[in-house]
Design a protein around this nucleic acid. Sequence first.
DNA 1: TCGGATTGACTAATCGATCAGTCAGGATAC
DNA 2: GTATCCTGACTGATCGATTAGTCAATCCGA
Lengths: 212, 212
Amino acid sequence: MSTTVQTVSDPAATNRDTILDAAEVLFGELGFAGTSMRAIAQAGGVAQALLHYHFDTKDQLFDTVVKRRTAQINAARLDNLAAFDARDTPPTLSDLLHALFAPALAHQGGGVPYARILATIAIGGAREQGLVRDNYDAIALRFIEAIKTIRPALSHADAAWGYSLAIATLVSAMARTGRAERLAREDEASDDILLDRIVRFAAAGIDGYGPK
Amino acid sequence: MSTTVQTVSDPAATNRDTILDAAEVLFGELGFAGTSMRAIAQAGGVAQALLHYHFDTKDQLFDTVVKRRTAQINAARLDNLAAFDARDTPPTLSDLLHALFAPALAHQGGGVPYARILATIAIGGAREQGLVRDNYDAIALRFIEAIKTIRPALSHADAAWGYSLAIATLVSAMARTGRAERLAREDEASDDILLDRIVRFAAAGIDGYGPK
DNA sequence: TCGGATTGACTAATCGATCAGTCAGGATAC
DNA sequence: GTATCCTGACTGATCGATTAGTCAATCCGA
């Protein structure tokens, strides 16, 4: 069996899921072009041809990896919005940003491996922007409308820019490069501390666009 | 000559510079792993072997591309800080962020091609974090100290996190994906408008960490 | 026995890197 | 003055390795 490395996966997982898990880790670490189909197959403990059987091309495998996590994250975000509607008191801006950020930072959102994939497509070229538009624009507009409801003084453009820059801080946090901690001379931040940091920064940043 | 595409470069430029220019464009568009030495050579109109003659390996070529722009950007930032010291009135937080952001967004800072390189290394893995540390940590600490001077109520950690998240908004803006404009239903923002957007957001975000 | 799942072996193309060798021009020797 | 040597810049050809993708054969549960 030589030096084959297998990713940990629950015993009931199908080979298809195993491949997706392995691909997610490698794409996150090495990027799309830097990851070979052979390496994914080896990490998943299956033949390379099986990747093409299940996903046809490398592009489609990558898209499937993204869509799997996207579905989880956006579903959780919509749940959070629905929970706000069910309450009698409207959410604060911080509440709203928490609802936006937390599902992406949570471990069921794919954790660090997927985080770096998301970060790369968020700043990518034309191909990646297509993925962003298809997977995230709809939910973005939902949150932008919610921002406008909470801060009626903001124009649509102000709310949209505020949202976009808030996402920028989220992407930076998700990548978990450790640079902020290094500069702050702190130990690596926990999920909760990280979440609190970016919620406070982004909420104040959005309020920088107009009166509360 | 077939379909060789040459990048525009001033006539006095050496082949070495021509290669760096071509590499910067392609690395920015396709990433490190996605860019081949052959493609760079073809874009620069030189033999592939010349790339290895001047830069030895692909890794060293990439490092040289980064360091060239880094030197320009950080020099301009230090100039801006020195200009503040020469004035009789201390800079505002917005002034400081302007001094930090403007050199990176300006066209002599490498423009969009280098911007995307910077964005990818900013969220990259271990190898890329080494580049960030070597090229940007020193100047980061200078600006963090300046933030603490302007906002004495902030702790070092608060200032460092504020700086890191401010850089996150800069990186997002530099990548120029057009998503913020798409969500805002606006035309593509000019450099000045973009700069104003991120300065206001980041300044307010930093003030979210403590009283003014 | 049937059909989806899976495999090893394979191909053409492309990868980064290396090679021996060409060429122009400045220094050196006589 | 001129023949010789040396060096930095540069090239075409090619290396072995790796790439994504293909295909016929095989496995195995229903």
